[in-house]
Computed example of a mutant assay.
Amino acid sequence: MILAEIGQYLRQHGRASLRDLATATGSTPEAVEAMLATLARKGRVRRLPAGSTCGTACCQCDPATLALYEWIGE
């Protein structure tokens, strides 16, 4: 179930932080990271390089501390 929720969230938003995905699914960052690894192996998501931005203009987070993921799959 959480795998589908993560996929749906990323399809809707394009990219998101690990923290945002954990909050959206009501799960822990560790559990979400494991699901993201599964989606990455399937070629559906990728982790963005350190320093990437989430795509919003708020600038409230330090990009160097964010783990950002982007939907690239079907």
Rank of each mutant, 00 (worst) to 15 (best):
T23K: 10
A67S: 14
P63K: 08
S27V: 03
L36E: 05
I72P: 00
T56R: 12
S52M: 05
C54T: 13
A31W: 04
C54P: 00
A64F: 01
R15K: 12
L36Q: 08
E70G: 07
A67M: 03
Y69Q: 02
T53Y: 03
L66M: 14
G14E: 02
A34C: 02
E70S: 09
T23M: 08
R46F: 00
D62Y: 01
R47D: 01
L48K: 01
G55C: 09
T53R: 10
A67I: 00
E5K: 15
I6Q: 01
Q8G: 04
S17V: 03
I2H: 07
H13A: 12
D62R: 07
G7H: 07
A22F: 02
S27H: 08
L3E: 12
C54I: 15
H13F: 12
L39C: 06
G55Q: 10
I72S: 01
G73S: 03
A4E: 14
E5N: 10
Q8S: 11
C54E: 09
E5M: 14
A40Q: 15
M35Q: 11
A22T: 04
G55M: 07
A37W: 11
L21N: 02
A4M: 11
A40E: 13
A64H: 07
G51F: 04
A34S: 12
T23V: 11
W71K: 05
A37M: 11
I72R: 03
A37S: 15
T56S: 12
T56H: 15
E74N: 11
A31D: 06
L66K: 08
R47I: 02
L48H: 04
Q8P: 00
H13L: 06
G73T: 06
L10Y: 07
L18I: 08
A37E: 15
G43V: 06
E33R: 15
A37C: 06
D62V: 04
D20Q: 14
A67K: 04
L3A: 10
L66G: 00
L48V: 08
C54H: 03
R44Y: 12
C61E: 14
L21V: 03
E30Y: 08
L21A: 04
E74T: 10
A22C: 06
D62K: 05
A24M: 04
T65Q: 09
E70M: 10
A4K: 14
T23N: 08
L3Q: 14
L3G: 06
L68I: 13
A22Q: 02
E70L: 08
T23F: 06
L21S: 06
Q8H: 11
S52T: 06
A37K: 14
M1F: 12
A37T: 14
G43W: 05
A22W: 03
